[in-house]
Design a protein around this nucleic acid. Structure first.
Length: 732
DNA sequence: CGCACGTGGTTTTTT
DNA sequence: ACCACGTGCG
């Protein structure tokens, strides 16, 4: 990613002293300091584009090449499989030793590895299966049904959230404080859910971490073994760790090991899923870190882009403090466009893309970013009409597709008959005449005898018996086969392939795609066998759950990148379009409800801006289709936070400078106004004063004249609808 | 059993 | 506007 990588030089690599020069050349002073730090815990505050991944990898290479540690003693943790893979690849290019002794992986991957190695001590079956969030949700629904929980009062999704976030805080059901009946009921479901998972031999994602944490904290022999082994623990994207992950790291680090954490508090954009930036400050305290190293030189963006990013982020409170700079001063100004509608915004973007393309910039070098997925629609439409190829990132992943999940469920059930989730998924898919009624009977029988559904099915009759026979036949026939052949056999003999082949009419196309995916599944299995030593079925199923897989074709085409700002973190492009910069959309209106929500939105904007290397477009629309209705919004307040002199307006300037910005006043986020066809004389975005409620911003209006009413978001009193007949409002 | 229609929700997401 | 999910009918 960073341009100057220092690899090769054949023989020199084998010579320690020569190698270090090769390794270390091209590092700037703080980077060098970070890489060559003596054994101690450290926090590397690494700004966007400052070479943080490079530092992390070079640090490992340095430690090994100087003999400070053998590969055996390295534990490197990331959040995504992609990051872990990149680390392994770059490291093996840099080091002549093999990377095998090192443990490099995601939190979940590493915990899985530990739990497999010590499954008895962790009280798990050897071949325990991993539930993805979809599986987890259906498991929760089953528990709720069994406990007769009202799913209107307790939406399953909310329970899922409750359980996951409790686990991420390190709390078991009995640890959760419940003072009201509502919470007590949720705790009950939590406890029953965990019991069900235990019985069925499955674990969800957060369970992997919590169970592993408990294993290490309760079993001193195992803990001490790994503490003695992993003398150097390195963590990427540390700002994204949740409390449990941090506790896990602390446990492994013990008293003597060093924790080398790399992160950027300004790029913390995952608080909504439990990430705790506070871990950075805790780290300083808990590990008595005396040297915080800041990587502030940016190798990615031109000066103007960086200045804009710095200006924006300086509005945030509670930063650890960091200011990016670059030797690439100046560059182009940021281009700002106000369009009347979302459609015209998209058309403008298309014409700019065409222009850039004509100038020789590849489509892959451009990215279209937006705050929410729904926004891609209009953009896609414009791109299709213009004949520009693009790829939307995010969305359904390979192993999450329905047909793939069905196929894997057969394998899971064959391997572990206790897996009720898997059984329920396929007992009647393809349909074999086992209806809801029969399934209910099975569940009752299982409950009555305290057995699994499989055992109940074995004792049932008729069509259920045939199903049990099918699974057993599949198991028998594939016992001795290699993985890809098991896969192919199951696909053909389960009736899955036939089912999709028989599809006609409207569903034909869809079925064809599903068949292709099933084919791809055999390919994936073949690939897996080639790439992994452990080519067992269990191992493949784990791979499927833990690595839902980007498994999409078309990477080689010259296609534009479309994605949410979240998905863009860690990437960079020559030209970036940040779209939909409207108050209520970006910053998103919902962020208002959350403590620190606006700051997180601002960090998100910071991430978006810093993706651009040379050219950055900022665009917004006065009016757009939102949730099936036309809504009107004011320009994003973030635009006001960017210095005037860095902006090049391609449309007449629409954003007034905020005279209060200097005093730290930030207007509340206004919701996009729906159906704002009104004649009240008040325009959304207008700042107003009310005698009782004080200062606020008009966020909506309807009706006309004194019969109308306006919605005002007050700085202190919150959002209110006011009838104009009575309310005395003055414009500010 | 399978389809048709109705209903509710709609920020961001990795494992 | 659109999608995912659930219920009720043929």
């Amino acid at each position: 990613m960073e341009s100057h990588d220092c690899v090769d030089e054949g023989a020199a690599l084998w010579d320690n002293s020569a190698m270090n020069t090769t390794l270390l050349s091209g590092l700037n002073p703080p980077q060098l300091q970070a890489v060559t730090l003596p054994q101690q815990s450290a926090l590397i505050l690494a700004g966007a584009g400052s070479g943080k991944t490079r530092v992390l990898i070079t640090r490992i290479a340095y430690l090994i090449s100087t003999g400070a540690v053998s590969p055996h003693g390295i534990l490197a943790v990331t959040f995504t499989n992609k990051a872990a893979k990149e680390m392994v690849t770059r490291l093996s290019a840099m080091l002549p030793v093999n990377t095998r002794g090192m443990w490099i992986g995601t939190f979940h991957g590493l915990c899985n590895r530990l739990l497999r190695a010590h499954y008895r001590e962790a009280n798990l079956p050897q071949a325990f299966q991993i539930l993805d969030s979809g599986d987890q949700l259906s498991a929760i629904k089953r528990v709720m049904k069994a406990l007769d929980v009202n799913d209107e009062k307790y939406p399953p999704r909310e329970l899922q959230n409750f359980i996951s976030s409790s686990k991420e805080q390190g709390l078991r059901a009995h640890d959760v404080e419940a003072f009201d009946p509502y919470t007590r009921r949720k705790v009950e479901v939590y406890a029953a859910y965990d019991a069900q998972c235990q019985k069925e031999g499955v674990v969800d994602f957060s369970e992997l971490l919590l169970r592993c944490y408990e294993l290490l904290s309760r079993n001193s022999a195992i803990r001490e073994h790994y503490q003695a082994r992993f003398t150097h623990i390195l963590v990427d994207e540390f700002q994204d760790t949740n409390p449990l992950q941090y506790q896990w790291l602390k446990l492994l680090a013990g008293k003597n090991n060093s924790l080398f954490a790399v992160g950027d508090d300004d790029q913390s954009i995952y608080a909504f899923r439990g990430a705790n930036v506070g871990n950075m400050k805790d780290l300083l305290r808990d590990f008595k870190v005396d040297a915080v190293i800041k990587l502030e030189q940016n190798y990615r963006s031109h000066g103007n882009i960086l200045d804009a990013a710095n200006a924006l982020i300086s509005n945030n409170k509670n930063r650890l403090g960091k200011n990016l700079w670059t030797s690439e001063q100046g560059g182009e100004k940021l281009r700002v466009m106000e369009a009347p509608t979302d459609v015209e915004e998209a058309n403008f973007i298309v014409s700019e893309i065409r222009q850039l393309k004509a100038e020789g910039l590849k489509l892959t070098e451009m990215a279209l970013l937006y705050r929410s997925n729904a926004q891609s629609r209009v953009l896609e439409h414009a791109l299709v009409s213009a004949g520009l190829s693009y790829r939307v990132y995010g969305g359904l992943r390979f192993f999450e597709r329905q047909e793939i999940k069905h196929a894997l469920a057969y394998l899971r059930l064959m391997q572990n008959t206790e897996d009720d989730n898997a059984l329920l998924r396929i007992i009647n898919f393809p349909t074999r005449g086992i209806g809801a009624r029969s399934i209910e009977q099975l569940q009752e029988a299982a409950k009555l005898h305290g057995t699994t559904l499989w055992d109940a099915a074995a004792r049932a009759g008729g069509k259920v018996t045939a199903f049990v026979g099918l699974i057993e036949a599949l198991r028998r026939a594939t016992r001795e086969l290699p993985l890809p052949e098991i896969m192919a056999h199951v696909l053909l003999n389960s009736g899955l392939v036939l089912h999709y082949k028989n599809e006609t009419g409207a569903k034909k196309r869809e079925a064809e795609e599903r068949l292709e995916n099933l084919n791809e599944l055999v390919t994936a299995a073949t690939l897996f066998v080639h790439e992994n030593e452990d080519d067992s079925l269990t191992s493949f199923l784990t791979h499927a759950s833990l690595e839902a897989g980007e498994h999409q074709a078309g990477d080689q085409d010259d296609a534009l990148h479309l994605m949410t700002v979240h998905a863009a973190k860690g990437l960079e492009f020559n030209a970036v379009f940040i779209t939909g910069l409207e108050e209520g959309l970006f910053p998103h209106q919902n962020s208002q409800r959350v403590d620190g929500g606006l700051d997180e939105e601002r960090r998100l904007m910071y991430v978006a801006i810093t993706r651009a290397r040379r050219r950055l477009y900022l665009s917004f629309a006065q009016r757009r289709m939102l949730n099936g209705q036309v809504s009107f919004s004011a320009p994003s307040s973030f635009l006001q936070e960017l210095p005037d002199e860095l902006l090049l307006w391609l449309s007449p300037r629409a954003v007034p400078r905020n005279p209060f910005a200097a005093f730290g006043y930030v207007a509340p986020v206004a919701a996009p106004v729906q159906c704002a066809v009104s004649d009240t004389g008040w325009r959304t975005g207008q700042r107003v004063m009310h005698q009782k409620f004080g200062e606020g911003v008009v966020t909506g209006a309807e009706g006309s004249g004194n019969d109308g009413r306006v919605q005002v978001n007050f700085k202190h009193a919150g959002s209110k609808w006011l009838a104009l007949e009575y309310a005395k409002l003055t414009a500010l």
